[in-house]
């Protein structure tokens, strides 16, 4: 378990204006810092064994055993259309409760490092810019200003939307099927892919 600073830092500007705060958990994915609303976070755990699930897209890292329940883990980096995360000592799984048609389901998000909890004043939260990021705009909830920097606040419910995860996977798996079904002709291609 990683100890988190429960009392997050408040930026000076926020203290002056004295308006309402929202707490955000910030973490590292690749080299960027992202934040998600603390209310979405259920738990943060260290990484044990992740069991791969075959025939799924890259961003589905696999499943873990969370106290007897099987929980899927999403590679946040891959989901944000970047490279797959390398697992290091600092890697963590942030468990997030997602609402699926009235039922809540726990999904894990693999991040490279968990930083801290920040209080961000509502006046410092600004709408998503239309340009300037490589991330799908609907994945961004807002931008939070912390001192002079901006942190991307993720729309975690969109990113972990079960409907989308299972849909995309269907596409991916039928691709895999197609590739496999014509195995003989694809042999070369596969051998190539094995080499790197």
């Amino acid at each position: 378990m990683i100890n988190l600073a429960i009392e997050g830092k408040r930026t000076e500007t926020a203290l002056v204006s004295g308006d309402r705060y929202q707490q955000y958990l910030t973490f590292l994915v690749g080299k960027d810092i992202f934040g998600i609303n603390i209310l979405d976070v259920k738990e943060i755990i260290e990484i044990n064994n992740i069991t791969r699930i075959p025939k799924t897209p890259d961003y589905i890292r696999g499943v873990i055993n969370l106290r007897g329940n099987v929980v899927p883990v999403i590679d946040l980096s891959a989901r944000l259309e970047r490279q797959c995360s390398e697992i290091t000592k600092l890697s963590c799984i942030v468990l997030i409760e997602v609402d699926v048609h009235g039922e809540s389901q726990v999904i894990g998000a693999l991040v490279d490092q968990v930083n801290e909890i920040l209080d961000i004043a509502e006046s410092n939260i600004q709408p998503t810019p239309d340009f300037g990021t490589d991330i799908r705009t609907d994945f961004i909830q807002a931008m939070g200003r912390v001192e002079e920097n901006f942190i991307i606040l993720l729309a975690i419910n969109r990113i972990l939307s079960i409907d989308e995860l299972s849909q995309l996977q269907r596409v991916a798996s039928s691709h895999a099927n197609l590739a496999l079904s014509d195995e003989t002709s694809n042999f070369k291609k596969m051998d190539n892919s094995d080499e790197h």
Binding site: T51, I53, P54, K55, T56, I60, V63, N65, G68, N69, V70, V71, P72, V100, Q105, I107, I162, L165, S166, Q167, Q169, R170, S173, N177
Partner: peptide, 19 residues
């Protein structure tokens, strides 16, 4: 048998998971 959950509803060849 533990259910794999809705994320893997469409998955072919796997019917569930176990610990």
């Amino acid at each position: 048998i533990k259910p794999l959950g809705q994320v893997f509803e469409q998955l072919q060849g796997i019917s569930g998971a176990t610990v």
